[in-house]
Design a protein around this nucleic acid. Structure first.
Lengths: 138, 138
DNA sequence: GGTCATTTGTACGTATGTATT
DNA sequence: GAATACATACGTACAAATGAC
């Protein structure tokens, strides 16, 4: 498949679709580097901004993580720790603030879970490492 | 407060901080428009790209929503519908795929909750409209 | 309907800064 | 120091959505 700037679909979306496909097909494995910006620019004959927007889109979906000086890696799906939702507690999903992102060491495109217990105390957990459960014999 | 390009903090982060402050202080109310790109460009004497990156940052945090031809609005915190987590079910938070974002009508910077019941069936819910609960008398 | 101004979206180029190897 | 890679930031131009008239 290739990129056609005449299509209605923006070039950067087309590139993101291509890369997403290569990730989901397993051609680009979790933990591996995707091609560099310069490489994608040359390979597809498009500008650097289009390339960067494509990668930013994948980042915002939580599919890749970009490390300065290195490149962009396909994110590995982390093992999820199960957290039991206590009686009288509630949970919401939202994006972290900048501070929370630093504190929790979260990649872009990773939400947080905010748990509020019966006493109103809240706790913020990394969304990519947690599964909230309620035991079968609740 | 103002913007100083000589600081270590990037210009676009400085602008995002300023706007976030104006939102959180209530000066820019939920539902209202923030200043246009052109206005911010002139007002702070910075380039359009820095302005756009600042707004994109706020979007990714779920603070604003941008509508083409209109501008960027401060997002209103929606009323959350409580969904009881059934016994034997689990929930995870993640970012939606592009398709899911369209289907659910989600703004950028809004995660989804994926509920898996005891039979393994999954359901994807809008993260900004849902609070998962477990009743006190579980 | 058509035109215009406003606003954001896409896409290019260039230059420089910073992190890593 | 050198090479590579991403980050920031400026400029330009045109496309597309919206609303006013």
């Amino acid at each position: 498949m290739s990129i056609d700037p005449r299509l209605h679909t923006p070039v950067y979306v087309q590139l993101a679709d291509l890369l997403r496909q290569r990730i989901e097909s397993g051609e680009l494995r979790p933990g591996s580097l995707i091609p560099s910006e310069a490489r994608l620019t040359q390979e597809y004959g498009i500008g650097r901004e289009a390339v960067r927007m494509a990668v930013a889109l994948l980042r915002s979906e939580g599919l890749v993580r970009t490390q300065r000086g290195h490149g962009s890696y396909v994110r590995e799906t982390t093992e999820r720790r199960t957290v039991e939702l206590a009686a009288g507690s509630s949970a919401i999903a939202r994006m972290p603030t900048g501070i929370e992102r630093l504190d929790l060491g979260l990649d872009e495109g990773v939400p947080v879970l905010e748990i509020r217990d019966a006493e109103g105390r809240t706790e913020v957990l990394p969304g990519d490492e947690i599964a909230i459960t309620r035991p079968a014999t609740g």
